[in-house]
Every structure is written in C-alpha cells, then in structure tokens.
Measured scan of single mutants.
Amino acid sequence: DEEIEKWIETLLKRNISLRVNGKDLEIGSEEFKEWVEKFIKEV
C-alpha cells in the first residue's frame, strides 16, 4: 500500500526507532521489517 510505504519512508528519513511491545525496533532492521509486514497484514 502506497500510504504505508510513504509512512515507512518518512520514518526512515527521520531515523526513528519505534517502541513495539516494550522493545526498541531499529528502523530498517529485520525485526522492524517483520513488524511492518505483520502490521500491514492486520490493517
């Protein structure tokens, strides 16, 4: 979905790490990609 890709790009540009389930996810890491894929499937 384009919306999500733009959102991810924005996050990448800002180099933010997300806190997911109490863990810091490094943007661009494998864990982050897995989380994004799960997130996309749920939406």
Rank of each mutant, 00 (worst) to 15 (best):
R19V: 09
E2I: 12
K6N: 09
N15R: 07
K13T: 07
D24M: 14
E42K: 09
G28Q: 03
D1C: 15
S17Y: 00
S29Y: 07
K38P: 00
G28A: 07
I8A: 02
F39N: 03
E2K: 14
F39Q: 04
R19W: 01
E30L: 12
W7K: 02
V36W: 11
K41Q: 09
R14A: 15
F32Q: 01
R14L: 15
E37M: 06
I40L: 14
W35V: 03
I4Y: 09
R19E: 07
L25F: 10
K13M: 09
K23V: 10
I16T: 06
R19K: 11
I40C: 15
E34R: 12
V36P: 00
F32Y: 07
D1W: 14
V20C: 15
L11M: 06
T10Y: 09
D1S: 12
L12F: 02
E42L: 13
G28L: 07
K41G: 04
F39L: 13
E9S: 01
K13R: 07
E26Q: 11
L12R: 05
L11V: 07
D24K: 13
E30H: 11
L18I: 14
E42I: 13
K38Q: 13
L18G: 01
R14F: 15
N21H: 05
L11E: 03
N21C: 15
V20R: 03
L18D: 01
V36R: 02
E26T: 11
E37R: 10
E42Q: 11
I40Q: 03
I27S: 05
G28H: 03
G22C: 10
N15Y: 08
E42H: 11
K13W: 02
E26R: 13
W35C: 07
L11R: 00
V43N: 05
F39K: 04
N15M: 15
E34A: 12
S17P: 09
R19G: 04
I4C: 15
E26M: 11
N15C: 15
N15V: 14
E2Q: 13
I40F: 13
K38Y: 06
L18P: 04
N21M: 07
S29W: 12
K33H: 12
I16Q: 05
L25D: 03
E2T: 12
N15Q: 07
K13F: 03
V43W: 13
L12A: 05
S17G: 08
E42R: 09
L12E: 04
E3L: 13
V20H: 04
K6D: 10
K13Y: 01
E9A: 01
I4L: 14
E30T: 11
K41E: 06
G22N: 05
L11K: 00
V43A: 10
S29D: 04
R14Y: 11
E30I: 12
I27H: 05
W35Y: 05
V36Q: 01
K38A: 11
D24A: 10
E2A: 12
I16D: 05
N21P: 03
E3A: 12
S17L: 12
R19S: 07
L12M: 08
I8Q: 01
L11H: 03
N15S: 11
R14P: 11
W35S: 01
E42Y: 13
V43L: 15
N15W: 11
R14W: 09
I8P: 00
R14V: 14
L11P: 00
D1H: 13
I27A: 07
L25T: 02
G22M: 10
E3H: 13
V36D: 00
K41L: 05
G28T: 07
R14I: 15
N15F: 14
L25H: 04
V20G: 04
K13V: 12
K38E: 11
E5W: 15
E26A: 11
E2W: 14
